[in-house]
């Protein structure tokens, strides 16, 4: 039920995506969630990207898929997904 009302941020934790940047990206997403007080609105999940790791590192926010993400892209991705949030 929780994921029905919250936006799901799903990050591939498969070894390929994870080793190529998602290990760092997860920490940056957590920091963004904390800094922008999003914890009541989002749920951060891990997943495996089902044979799409060659296009990765992958993540999704709601229905939007992001491929080839790098840790340095995380701020912009989160900002575009949650544009109205202000830093605490």
């Amino acid at each position: 039920m929780e994921s029905d009302i919250k936006t799901v941020i799903s990050v591939c934790m498969g070894s390929s995506c994870f080793s190529r940047g998602n290990n760092e990206s997860i920490e940056l997403i957590k920091k963004y969630i904390s800094d922008y007080n999003l914890s009541e609105r989002v749920i951060l999940k891990g997943n495996l990207c089902h044979a799409n790791c060659s296009l990765g590192p992958n993540m999704s926010i709601g229905d939007n898929m992001y491929q080839g993400i790098l840790p340095e892209n995380i701020y912009d991705i989160m900002k575009s997904a949650f544009p109205s949030e202000r830093k605490e």
């Binding site: 070894s15 390929s16 994870f18 080793s19 190529r20 290990n23 760092e24 790791c53 060659s54 990765g56």
Partner: peptide
């Protein structure tokens, strides 16, 4: 893992080859 799987580094968790 196949070499083509893109494994180049596995920061903090060691390089993985079988699972």
């Amino acid at each position: 893992n196949k070499k083509s799987s893109g494994f180049t580094r596995f920061i903090g968790f060691g390089y993985s080859k079988e699972c």
